[in-house]
């Protein structure tokens, strides 16, 4: 079996999410990687993809119409290449989720998004109900169209391979959709709801100054958003929109570091779905310690600078 993976690159490297998709694809068969872009970008992307171990061949599609990953021409391109492949894969990224269902519709296939595990060539595990249940589904379609949940597959390495590159003749022409502009936020600090890492502070910090002095350097190191407990917000340490909890923002980052937060019910309700929870607290009996994966008991004013330095 041969599998086609649509691969995204960024700054001359294959994105980690796409390398996870490649790793997933390796479980299904030989992997061909498709890279797209205008002439120059596709050239660079092909070079990056060729270096990923596990990729047997790189298909390079260079054309202006493919410059911005617009779903309409990209889907037509993937469909035009689909004939030889049993499975068509992409990462569960904004681009993958945008284009792959369109591909599936054009092939008369029911797509399978957010694959977390591959049972066999027809059978896959995916989350439903916001991850509160995991469904194992078996597809009767001749071709499978999948998007791969990055966190579920260890990514293939970025370097070490040397796959041949083959240029694809691009004939697709779709003009119904046109790229206008892109906007990436100027602030380095991610937003609470979408942050991968959150550093959150509570009453234990004792003042707004300490919030800035102790938490911000740690958050900078981790590229983290800053959150707070309700007591910290009520005490005026930080503005309202930092509040994590049932009455504030409900978050589920990969890493949540709770500093000096006791863990009142309403706070726990807002962050208990975080993948990994770290509690830094002086009280070993604090409720936050009961839900934390890792707890460090002690004086936060010593621990936090030490942690910041160690990262």
């Amino acid at each position: 079996m041969t599998v086609l993976v649509f691969v995204e690159t960024e700054a001359g490297q294959v994105r980690q999410a796409s390398r996870s998709a490649i790793a997933a694809a390796e479980k299904l068969g030989d992997v061909h990687a498709l890279v797209v872009g205008d002439a120059a970008a596709s050239e660079a992307a092909a070079a990056a993809a060729a270096k990923v171990p596990g990729v047997a061949k790189v298909l390079k599609a260079g054309a202006d119409v493919l410059a911005h990953d617009l779903a309409e021409p990209l889907a037509d391109l993937i469909v035009s290449l689909a004939g030889n492949y049993t499975h068509l894969l992409a990462a569960s990224s904004a681009i993958g989720k945008n284009v792959m269902p369109r591909v599936a519709a054009l092939l008369d296939v029911q797509p399978i998004p957010d694959v977390m595990a591959i049972v066999d060539a027809d059978t896959f595990v995916r989350p439903i109900y916001a991850g509160n249940a995991l469904a194992t589904v078996k597809s009767s379609d001749a071709k499978k169209v999948l998007t791969i949940r990055a966190a579920s597959f260890d990514p293939a390495p970025a370097e070490g391979g040397s796959a041949p590159v083959e240029a694809v003749n691009v004939t697709v022409q779709d003009t119904t959709s046109r790229f206008v502009s892109q906007h990436t936020p100027t602030s380095d600090r991610p937003e609470l709801e979408s942050a991968r890492v959150i550093v959150s502070g509570g009453r234990g910090l004792q003042s707004g100054e300490n919030f800035h002095k102790y938490l911000e350097p740690l958050a900078d190191k981790l590229g983290a958003a800053i959150g707070a407990s309700r007591v910290a917000v009520d005490s005026g340490y930080v503005p309202n929109d930092c509040q994590v909890g049932q009455t504030g923002k409900i978050v589920a980052p990969e890493l949540y570091i709770a500093v000096g937060i006791s863990g009142a019910i309403q706070h726990l309700a807002g962050m208990k779905d975080s993948k990994v929870i770290v509690a830094i607290n002086k009280d070993p009996e604090a409720p936050i310690v009961q839900v934390a994966d890792y707890s460090l008991i002690g004086d936060l004013f010593e621990i936090v600078p030490e942690l910041t330095a160690a990262l």
Binding site: R203, R230, V231, Q246, T247, A264, I265, Q266
Partner: peptide
């Protein structure tokens, strides 16, 4: 909240 220092009633009305 703050039972030792300045006891205050916190109302989590959402619950």
């Amino acid at each position: 909240a703050d039972q030792e220092t300045d006891p205050r009633l916190v109302i989590n009305s959402q619950n």
